Every structure is written in structure tokens, then in C-alpha cells.
Measured scan of single mutants.
Amino acid sequence: NQESVVAAVLIPINTALTVGMMTTRVVSPTGIPAEDIPRLISMQVNQVVPMGTTLMPDMVKGYAP
């Protein structure tokens, strides 16, 4: 099972992602793959992401799977 990126904290809208904001977990449905965390650093979320929420591609500005 592939791990997906999950919010480790509440991430406010338009916040640039940092390593500490993200964790990984096997979830269903799957979100952004864990191995993409290095690509996500400094990208901004386009909505509020509650802690424990799986990051989906459409939540991150400029992210393309």
C-alpha cells in the first residue's frame, strides 16, 4: 500500500508547505504520494487543510501529478 501525504497540523489557506506540516499515512482514497514531499515544500495550499486531512493534488497550487 502506498503512503499518501497527510496534514500533520492545521494548514491555513495560502500557506507555503514545510516538512513539519506534512506526515504520511496509508489512506483511502490515496492522495499525493509520500515521495512527492520534496516537491511540495514551498508550494501553497489553496484551501484550509485540517489536521489529518489527506492532501489531494487539487489542494496544492501548481502541483501536477
Rank of each mutant, 00 (worst) to 15 (best):
T15P: 00
S4C: 03
G20A: 14
S42W: 12
I13Y: 06
N1K: 03
T54M: 06
Q2C: 03
L40E: 00
V45P: 02
M51W: 07
S42C: 07
T18A: 15
V45K: 01
I32M: 03
V60T: 02
L10A: 12
T53P: 00
T54E: 02
M56N: 07
A16Q: 14
R25H: 12
L40K: 00
V49Y: 01
G20E: 13
I13H: 12
I13W: 08
A64S: 13
M56E: 05
M22P: 01
A7W: 02
V5H: 00
V27G: 05
Q47E: 13
V19R: 09
V45N: 02
A16Y: 10
E35Q: 10
M56Y: 10
L55V: 14
I41S: 04
E35A: 06
I11S: 00
N46H: 07
T54Y: 05
Q2Y: 07
A16S: 07
I13V: 13
P65F: 02
V49F: 01
R25L: 05
G31S: 03
T23V: 12
M59H: 09
V26L: 11
L40M: 15
E3Q: 07
A7T: 07
P29F: 08
N46R: 15
P33Y: 14
S4I: 02
T54V: 10
S28P: 02
A64W: 06
M56K: 09
T53H: 08
M21F: 06
Q44V: 09
I13E: 12
A34G: 09
R25C: 03
V48M: 11
V48C: 05
T23H: 14
V49E: 00
D58G: 14
N14D: 13
I11Q: 00
G62I: 04
I41F: 08
K61I: 09
V49A: 03
V26C: 07
V27M: 13
G20K: 11
Y63H: 04
V5K: 01
T53D: 05
P50L: 13
A16P: 12
Q44R: 11
L10S: 13
E3I: 05
T23M: 09
V26W: 07
V6W: 02
I37S: 06
V49P: 00
N14E: 12
E3N: 06
T15V: 14
Q47T: 07
V5Q: 01
I13G: 09
I41Q: 14
M59Y: 13
M43T: 13
N14Y: 12
P29Y: 10
N46W: 09
Q47W: 05
T53A: 14
D58E: 14
T23S: 15
E35V: 12
Q2K: 12
M22T: 03
T54N: 02
I41T: 14
V48N: 15
S42T: 12
L55K: 00
V48D: 04
Q2D: 13
N1W: 03
T24W: 14
P12M: 08
M43W: 08
A64Y: 04
N14I: 02
P33D: 04
P33R: 06
I32F: 06
S4G: 03
I41W: 10
P12L: 07
T24K: 12
I13S: 05
M43Y: 10
G31Q: 03
E3M: 08
V27Y: 03
T15C: 03
S42A: 12
Q2E: 14
D58W: 10
L10Q: 12
A34S: 14
G62P: 06
Q2L: 13
A16E: 09
G52S: 13
A64F: 14
T15E: 13
G52N: 14
V60I: 10
T23C: 04
D36M: 15
V27I: 11
V26I: 15
P12F: 05
R39D: 03
I37E: 03
M21G: 02
K61T: 08
L40F: 02
A16M: 15
V9C: 03
G52E: 13
T54L: 06
Y63A: 04
N14A: 11
P50N: 15
P57A: 11
D58V: 15
A16I: 14
M51A: 13
N46F: 07
K61A: 11
M21L: 07
V5W: 02
V6K: 02
P12I: 03
A34W: 04
E35L: 11
R25D: 08
A16W: 15
N14V: 02
K61P: 07
V60H: 01
G62A: 09
N46K: 08
V5L: 04
V6G: 02
S28M: 13
V19K: 13
P12R: 09
M22V: 13
I11M: 06
N14H: 15
V27T: 14
P38T: 12
P50S: 12
Y63E: 03
D36W: 06
P57F: 11
M22D: 01
D58I: 14
V45C: 03
T53R: 08
V27Q: 07
V60C: 02
M22L: 10
K61E: 12
P12C: 06
M56C: 03
V9H: 13
P57V: 09
A64E: 09
V26N: 14
M43R: 13
I32R: 00
A64Q: 07
V19W: 12
T53Q: 08
V9F: 13
T15M: 12
A8G: 05
D36H: 15
V5Y: 01
T54I: 06
A64L: 12
V48P: 15
T23N: 14
V9A: 14
M22G: 01
S42V: 03
I32K: 01
Q47P: 00
Q47N: 11
N46V: 04
G31T: 02
G52H: 11
V19G: 11
L55W: 01
V45T: 13
E3F: 05
Y63N: 03
M59Q: 05
P57T: 15
T15D: 08
V26G: 06
S28H: 09
V26A: 13
M56L: 07
V9S: 13
I37C: 04
T30I: 15
N46M: 09
N46S: 10
V26M: 11
V9P: 00
I41V: 05
P57Q: 07
T24P: 04
Q44W: 10
T23F: 13
T18K: 07
D58C: 15
G52I: 02
V45I: 12
V27L: 05
N1I: 07
M43P: 00
S42E: 12
A64I: 06
M59E: 01
V27H: 04
M56I: 09
S28G: 05
P29H: 06
G52T: 05
I37Q: 13
Q47C: 04
N1H: 04
L40W: 02
D36C: 05
M21V: 04
S4R: 02
P57N: 06
I41P: 02
M51D: 09
I41G: 03
N46Y: 06
L40D: 00
A64R: 10
V9M: 12
L17V: 03
A8M: 08
Q44N: 12
P12Q: 10
T15G: 10
E35D: 08
G62K: 05
T53Y: 12
T53V: 11
Q2R: 03
I41H: 04
G52D: 09
M51P: 11
T23P: 01
P33L: 04
G31H: 02
I13M: 12
D58N: 12
N1F: 06
L17T: 00
P65Q: 10
I32D: 00
A7N: 01
N14Q: 12
D58Q: 15
P29Q: 04
M56W: 04
V27S: 13
V60R: 00
V48I: 14
V45F: 01
S4H: 02
R39Q: 07
E3K: 04
I37K: 08
M59R: 02
A8I: 06
P12T: 08
A34I: 05
P50G: 07
P50I: 06
D36Y: 09
I11K: 00
I41R: 13
L10K: 08
T18H: 11
A7Q: 01
Q2S: 14
D36L: 12
S4P: 00
V45D: 00
V27E: 05
N14L: 07
M51E: 13
N46E: 07
N46I: 12
I13R: 09
N1R: 02
A34F: 04
T15H: 14
P29C: 04
I32W: 02
M21C: 03
M51V: 12
Q2V: 11
I41A: 09
S4Y: 07
N14T: 06
A34P: 13
V27P: 01
V48W: 09
M43H: 09
P12V: 04
M21Y: 10
T54S: 04
S42N: 12
M22H: 01
P29I: 06
T15N: 14
V6Y: 03
L40H: 00
T23Q: 11
M56A: 05
T18L: 10
M51K: 13
R39F: 06
V26Y: 07
G20P: 09
V19F: 13
M59F: 10
V19Y: 11
Q44H: 13
A8W: 07
A7V: 03
I37G: 04
A34T: 07
S42K: 10
S4K: 02
I32N: 01
T15Q: 07
M21N: 11
M59L: 04
E35C: 05
T24G: 13
V9R: 14
G20R: 09
L55F: 15
L55E: 01
V60G: 00
